[in-house]
Design a protein around this nucleic acid. Structure first.
Length: 554
RNA sequence: GUCUCAGUAGCUCAGUAGGAUAGAGCAACAGCCUUCUAAGCUGUGGGUCGGGGGUUCGAAUCCCUCCUGGGACGCCA
């Protein structure tokens, strides 16, 4: 639509126009599009006011109803009825595929997301990675890519040496059987507390990890056990969130895939010794990348290099995305540099999608100090609150527990996805549980109300648009922008664009049905019901792209 | 100290391919349930866009500089 307008202006413009020159006016009263003419004044040696007046006087196009020159701007008012008719027909016809594209040309994109650590609780931080990654996968899919979601479980590393040490010193089988993650977490916290006064514990931990890596049977058995119990607990959360994965290949999966990478680094002369450890030197302003510890054990970077190579070989990705916290930015820069030095030109296809930390009291939460908020508790609380709301507001509702789950989980998901990824978030349960204003339940409620109207409106096969009022027009303009929002969100790998869009659309729709009768105005019923239908289509699809459910009744 | 991310209303945040009077939500206050579900709608008040320079017809947006906060910075992941 914007291009049509631009072409119409181009015909009468004395200057070559570009897409970004056409802007949206500050207020709806000023029109639907505007062309500021100040930028042309110098070239044309005429006042912007005069230029705007000339353009406004001569522009002509079926989509443009009126053009006004105001203070150097050409303000354009579109032909609402023509646009509304075409748009509603398009949305009705395309339904859920409205806004889809095949821009991605079926290229595979691997997405590293969630990646919780074994023997540690699923924290709020993992929630961000999980829901942002999941939404990015859905967005890429809608744009024609083939996403592959990889849950790179943190099931290897020195931390397990520490945990094994702690378990052997203070733990017992019975407690772990009773409450696996809780017990293991306590042991882990105790380890770090005691290590502060007894630093030799850290050496013991490292030695235990070395033993694990060398295949010690006893250590391996314990590790397997911890892992099985943890995964069971994680699965409960994934079920609630409605997130699935294409691969659960965690860090341990790469144990036998690191040596070839290390060998390659050595063959290319990139590996050098430094203080007993093996490192790859990078640019001056960047610390070297540690490949092997002085005791010969591997490190995080070693595994990530092996994993990146393995993913390229297996999936031949066009893009490889890592949805991992801000604090690991340096790590990923280093990984890319090392891959580049190895001669892999696909280092450029690797993208770290960082996100802000969840803070408590302005500080990072730390598992080691036991400062952590459990996601499962938060989800349960949100679902409980939704259930309470249903009992109060709509006690006759069927499938109450399903709806409560959809709404409770939706509230949590949305509160996370609506803000830009890079913002640190101060943890605030109250904010997350909100159901009014710019929230998930608000969008869900608008959609439920729309469905409610449709249930009473009956089926209409055709509609005529006689006149589009301001409420309808705002809603229609938003519907028109959905494909653009989808494209931007996919390109920027930023679900918050869709979340904000969903709120905007819900607001416009709420305002519309709060002020305009749908059912009681029979002449306009087919048209307005069609508009409502389109709103449900686009709202539902928006929420789907965020990983949220959109109940038809709540 | 170096690198990096951020700083917009009392609070949480949009807006950052430069455009008109900087917008929402929450909280506060005032209305609206005999009319499509009040998880809603309508209205009011609320601002040195961290400070200071610069570029531009025009800057919250671009550049420089300073201040504040988060995070990272070799044997954790």
């Amino acid at each position: 639509m914007k291009n049509d307008i631009l072409q119409a202006l181009q015909i009468v413009s004395p200057i070559q126009l570009e897409e970004q020159m056409l802007v949206r006016p500050a207020h709806a009263k000023l029109g639907d599009f505007a062309l500021p003419c100040f930028q042309f004044a110098k070239v044309l040696r005429k006042s912007p006011v005069a230029i705007a007046e000339e353009i406004a006087a001569s522009v002509k196009h079926p989509l443009i109803q009126k053009a006004e020159a105001v203070n150097g701007y050409v303000n354009l008012f579109l032909n609402r009825e023509v646009i509304a008719t075409a748009l509603l027909q398009t949305v009705l016809q395309k339904s859920a595929t409205y806004g889809s594209s095949n821009e991605g040309n079926s290229g595979v994109v691997t997405i590293d997301l969630s990646s919780p650590n074994i023997a540690k609780p699923f924290s709020m931080g993992h929630l961000r990675s999980t829901v942002i990654g999941n939404s990015i996968a859905l967005l890429l899919e809608k744009n024609g890519y083939q996403p592959v979601k990889i849950n790179y479980i943190g099931d290897w590393g020195t931390q397990f040496g520490k945990l094994l040490t702690a378990y052997r010193k203070w733990g017992n089988e019975e407690d772990v059987r009773q409450a696996p993650i809780e017990t293991l977490l306590k042991l882990y916290i105790r380890f770090h507390e005691e290590a502060e006064s007894v630093p030799s514990l850290n050496d013991e931990g490292r030695a235990a990890f070395k033993a694990l890596e060398d295949g010690d049977t006893d250590a391996l058995a314990l590790w397997e056990w911890f892992k099985t119990e943890s995964l069971k607990e994680f699965q409960r959360i994934y079920d609630l969130l409605g997130v699935t994965f294409d691969s659960y290949n965690g860090e341990a999966y790469y144990n036998d895939k690191m040596e070839p990478v290390v060998q390659q680094l050595e063959d290319k002369g990139l590996l050098v010794e430094s203080d007993g450890a093996m490192v790859v030197q990078l640019e001056e302003d960047m610390p070297p990348c540690l490949i092997k510890k002085s005791d010969g054990a591997t490190l995080y970077a070693t595994r990530d290099l092996a994993a990146a190579t393995d993913r390229k070989n297996n999936y031949d990705f066009v893009k490889s995305i890592y949805v991992v916290g801000n604090e690991q930015s340096l790590h990923f820069t280093q990984i890319k540099k090392v891959l580049g030095k190895m001669g892999h030109e696909w280092e450029n296809d690797i993208t770290h999608v960082p996100f802000g930390l969840i803070l408590q009291g302005g500080k990072k939460m730390s598992t080691r100090k036991g400062k952590i908020v459990l996601l499962e508790k938060v989800l349960k609380e949100a679902i409980g609150l939704a259930q309470k709301n249903i009992e109060e507001k709509n006690p006759a509702l069927a499938n109450q527990s399903d709806v409560a789950e959809a709404v409770g989980v939706g509230a949590i998901l949305f509160s996370d996805l609506k803000q830009h990824r890079k913002h640190d978030i101060e943890f605030n349960l109250e904010t997350m549980l909100q159901v009014e204003g710019e929230t998930g339940p608000y969008a869900q409620y608008a959609n439920a109300r729309a469905h409610s109207i449709l249930r009473k409106a009956g089926e209409a096969n055709t509609f005529d648009v006689v006149e589009v009022n301001d409420y309808e027009w705002e809603t229609i303009k938003l519907l028109e922008q959905f494909p653009l929002a989808v494209k931007r969100a996919a390109n920027d790998l930023d679900p918050s664009i869709i979340a904000k869009y969903a709120v905007d659309l819900a607001q416009a729709f709420n305002s519309f049905y709060g002020n305009v009768p749908v059912l009681s105005d029979e002449a306009n019923l087919p048209y307005r019901a069609s508009l409502v239908r389109c709103v449900t289509i686009v709202l539902t699809e928006s929420m789907r792209l965020l990983g949220m459910k959109a109940p038809e009744e709540m």
